[in-house]
Amino acid sequence: MSEPAISVQNLYRSFGELQAVNGVSFDVAPGSVCGFIGANGAGKTTTMRIIASLDYPNEGRVTICGHDVMNKPAKVRSLIGWMPDHFGNYSHVTVLEYLDFYARALGYRGKERQMRVQEVMEFADLLPLADRFSNKLSKGMTQRLGLGRSLLHDPEVLIMDEPAAGLDPKARVELKHLIRILAEEGKTIFISSHILSELGEMCDHLLFMNEGRLVHQGDAESLRVHGKQAGVSLYRVHVVGPAEELANWAAMNPNVEFLETLRLGGRIEIDSADPEKAAYLLARMIQDGLKISEFHREERNLEDAFIDLLEATNQPVPNPIVSPPQLPINS
């Protein structure tokens, strides 16, 4: 098996009384996209900063492509690209000069430097912004510039802390598109967010963190079937007439739970994943006089699954887990 791109073993970090990271261990395979999920204050940023050699752990070991972060920070820094959740840009410096400065600071000289800047500007679509002052860009443009900067030295591993935070839907689509291209090129991407569904779409692997501990790891599907809600299914039922009829019907059927009222009916939960059971219950509804206009199965969303998972493991439920605004299909 190949060496993990990121390996975190038994990591602890405290700030005074606060235990920000509490015995976290995980590996990220090379060339994968790994999502790091948790509410604000869960310990994501602290963990990422330690991985990026910007902070030090009280205990534990972190390696990037086999190189120890604490013992070989210079080597590690040449292997990683770091994109923080917030960074300021310089006044009176154009986008082109900004990237040129960082290319110089990374040790590129002469034509090679110009080539690197050009490649990155083409990739992040920054050429049209070349003469714009870097501190006068929109949030989306700034994130593209940040991504460009973090790619200047062609790093093996890209660490992105909440890159989509504060972006409008269009900018989020653009950023996701760029991340997908990088993933296809074989870069390892470690990306954090508190927007679960967004990461679910683009990550091969998800890590869930709460109060400094890793509470679950796997893909999005494994989270959906994990915990107390495994073996149940959700259905959206639209009825002609008042929703109370559906609620009353659900109350009389022991295997059905009415979850919430919708404009045209409601959501119900059936204590089985078997489609035949659903078909049987649908037939019963019609038989019992409910006028069903729509009946379809719903995917369990990640936010619900995450909260269920925390409840199942007796972890305090964080607040808030944010749902993103709806994105266009095929983004």
């Binding site: 310089y90 006044s91 009176h92 410096v93 082109l96 000069e97 040129d100 400065f101 110089r104 600071a105 000289r109 002469g110 034509k111 430097r113 110009q114 080539m115 800047v117 050009q118 500007m121 050429l127 070349a130 003469d131």
Partner: peptide, 30 residues
């Protein structure tokens, strides 16, 4: 590979000068 004319303008300061001085001069003189 051809270098975009916009980017070829980046040769305004020599590579021998420290990147920090280059950046600060670009900023400061404006």
């Amino acid at each position: 590979p051809e270098i975009d004319p916009i980017i070829s303008g980046l040769a305004d300061f020599s590579d021998r000068i420290s990147p920090m001085i280059v950046k600060e001069l670009r900023q400061g003189l404006r």
